[in-house]
Simulated scan of single mutants.
Amino acid sequence: MFRLGCVFFCFIALSGCFETTETKTNSVSWYKENDSERKQKLIECNDNPGELENTPNCINAKQAELQLISKGKTTRF
C-alpha cells in the first residue's frame, strides 16, 4: 500500500512539470484568412521571441503576414 501511495504521489508531482502552451497549430492559409488572430499572434511572438519565435504558430503567422504584404493586402501589424 505504501508503494502504491509513493507511485501515486510521484505521478501527481510530475504531472505539473510538463506544460503545453499551444494546443492547435493553425496553417498559413488560416492566418491569412483571420486578420485579428494573425495580428494578435504576431504581437505575442514579437513580445517573447526567446520562447515563441520558433513555435509553429509564430512561424505560420509570420509567413502569412509576409505573403499578404508581398501581395499588397496588408501592412505590418
Results as ranks from 00 to 15, higher is better:
residue 1 M to R: 12
residue 1 M to N: 13
residue 1 M to D: 12
residue 2 F to D: 13
residue 2 F to G: 08
residue 3 R to H: 14
residue 3 R to W: 12
residue 3 R to Y: 12
residue 3 R to I: 14
residue 4 L to E: 10
residue 4 L to A: 12
residue 4 L to D: 09
residue 4 L to P: 00
residue 5 G to H: 14
residue 6 C to E: 08
residue 6 C to Y: 10
residue 7 V to H: 04
residue 7 V to F: 11
residue 8 F to K: 11
residue 8 F to D: 03
residue 10 C to R: 04
residue 10 C to A: 15
residue 11 F to S: 11
residue 11 F to M: 08
residue 12 I to H: 07
residue 12 I to T: 09
residue 12 I to L: 15
residue 13 A to R: 05
residue 14 L to D: 00
residue 14 L to Y: 01
residue 14 L to M: 10
residue 15 S to I: 00
residue 15 S to V: 00
residue 15 S to K: 01
residue 16 G to R: 10
residue 18 F to H: 04
residue 18 F to S: 03
residue 19 E to R: 10
residue 20 T to S: 07
residue 20 T to A: 03
residue 20 T to C: 00
residue 21 T to M: 06
residue 21 T to E: 07
residue 22 E to M: 08
residue 22 E to Q: 14
residue 24 K to E: 09
residue 24 K to T: 13
residue 25 T to D: 06
residue 25 T to Y: 09
residue 25 T to H: 10
residue 27 S to Q: 06
residue 28 V to N: 05
residue 28 V to T: 08
residue 29 S to P: 01
residue 30 W to P: 03
residue 30 W to G: 03
residue 30 W to M: 05
residue 31 Y to W: 05
residue 32 K to Q: 11
residue 32 K to D: 10
residue 32 K to N: 14
residue 33 E to I: 01
residue 33 E to F: 01
residue 33 E to C: 03
residue 34 N to W: 06
residue 34 N to R: 07
residue 34 N to G: 04
residue 35 D to F: 11
residue 37 E to S: 12
residue 38 R to G: 06
residue 38 R to E: 06
residue 38 R to M: 10
residue 38 R to K: 09
residue 39 K to N: 15
residue 41 K to F: 10
residue 42 L to K: 04
residue 42 L to F: 06
residue 42 L to T: 04
residue 43 I to H: 11
residue 43 I to L: 15
residue 43 I to N: 13
residue 45 C to M: 07
residue 45 C to D: 06
residue 46 N to Y: 11
residue 46 N to K: 15
residue 46 N to D: 14
residue 47 D to M: 05
residue 48 N to V: 07
residue 48 N to A: 07
residue 48 N to C: 02
residue 48 N to Q: 08
residue 50 G to E: 11
residue 50 G to N: 12
residue 52 L to K: 09
residue 53 E to Y: 14
residue 53 E to G: 09
residue 53 E to T: 11
residue 55 T to Y: 02
residue 55 T to E: 08
residue 56 P to I: 06
residue 57 N to Y: 01
residue 58 C to E: 02
residue 58 C to I: 03
residue 58 C to W: 01
residue 59 I to P: 03
residue 59 I to G: 03
residue 60 N to S: 08
residue 60 N to W: 02
residue 60 N to Y: 04
residue 61 A to E: 02
residue 61 A to M: 04
residue 62 K to I: 00
residue 63 Q to T: 13
residue 63 Q to R: 07
residue 64 A to W: 01
residue 64 A to M: 03
residue 65 E to S: 06
residue 65 E to P: 00
residue 65 E to L: 11
residue 65 E to Y: 02
residue 66 L to G: 10
residue 69 I to P: 04
residue 69 I to C: 10
residue 69 I to R: 14
residue 70 S to Y: 09
residue 70 S to D: 15
residue 71 K to S: 12
residue 71 K to E: 15
residue 71 K to H: 09
residue 72 G to Y: 08
residue 74 T to S: 13
residue 74 T to F: 03
residue 76 R to V: 07
residue 77 F to R: 13
residue 77 F to Y: 14
residue 77 F to S: 12
